[in-house]
């Protein structure tokens, strides 16, 4: 199943997908064990002449331990899973590394309105570059996002970066990522936002440092399909 995940280009990608795989194998093993036991019982204990079912009401602690011990083991696995995955969550949502650059992403019905800092590297100055649905970032740089919404709730989703955050009107939510591979990747809206929800998306262009500087100057970039305006 895991091979269905799209290519991971986030700096935390390897650890992230490892958390994924870890949970997958733990619950997969339990799932297989339970299903095998279930199907074994179904086929092995069919009604036969002359054989009577066992009388096992499971009233005693000794009998109940057949159920309770596996349940406690499950609790142990649960806690182990949680223990392993929480640091990942904190790394993504709580502990933001210092920004190399900050971009404002504003969702509105049905486009992503994106404000990049210009050559001065600061937002809110004259050389800010405004785009619709197209996010340009330099590779290997920590990008901070101010995630906002104008009308309804949207959700900023970049599958290849394993990035998702709802944008809520009235709030500015911080997010961050560092892309480690150049190329173009999908952006979509993952929260139902109205009639145009199915058309709300865009592209993230992860550019090499030279290409990024070129884009800032408004020059043509050959390594990236910049003409792309489809979803």
């Amino acid at each position: 199943m895991l091979q269905w995940l799209p290519e991971n280009i986030a700096s935390y990608g390897a650890q992230y997908d490892a958390v994924f795989a870890n949970i997958y194998y733990i619950v997969g093993a339990w799932f297989l064990a339970a299903e095998l036991f279930l199907f074994f019982c179904i086929f092995a204990f069919g009604r036969r002449k002359g054989r009577k079912a066992g009388y096992l009401p499971g009233h005693s602690w000794k009998a109940m331990s057949w159920v309770l011990i596996p349940a406690v083991v499950i609790l142990g696995f649960d806690l182990a899973i949680d223990h392993q995955q929480v640091p990942m969550w904190r790394a993504i949502k709580e502990k933001q590394p210092p920004a190399d650059q900050t971009v404002t992403v504003k969702g509105k019905q049905f486009v992503w309105d994106i404000t990049h800092p210009g050559a001065d590297g600061k937002l809110g100055t004259e050389d800010d570059k405004q785009t619709m649905n197209q996010l340009y970032v330099p590779v290997d740089k920590v990008i901070h996002l101010n995630l906002e919404a104008e009308d309804v709730i949207h959700s900023f989703f970049i599958p290849n970066l394993r990035f998702k955050q709802d944008v809520v009107p009235g709030r500015s939510i911080k997010g961050w990522f560092k892309a480690v591979k150049t190329g173009q990747y999908k952006i979509s809206c993952a929260e139902l936002c109205g009639v145009g929800h199915g058309n709300m998306g865009g592209w993230i262009h992860v550019l090499s440092e030279q290409d990024y500087q070129k884009w800032l100057r408004g020059e043509e970039i050959t390594t990236s399909r910049l003409d792309k305006d489809s979803l």
Partner: peptide, 15 residues
Amino acid sequence: IHLASTSTDIYLHDT
């Protein structure tokens, strides 16, 4: 379990 775990839910939420 994948959805209950906060970090994996980031990717899977609303898919």
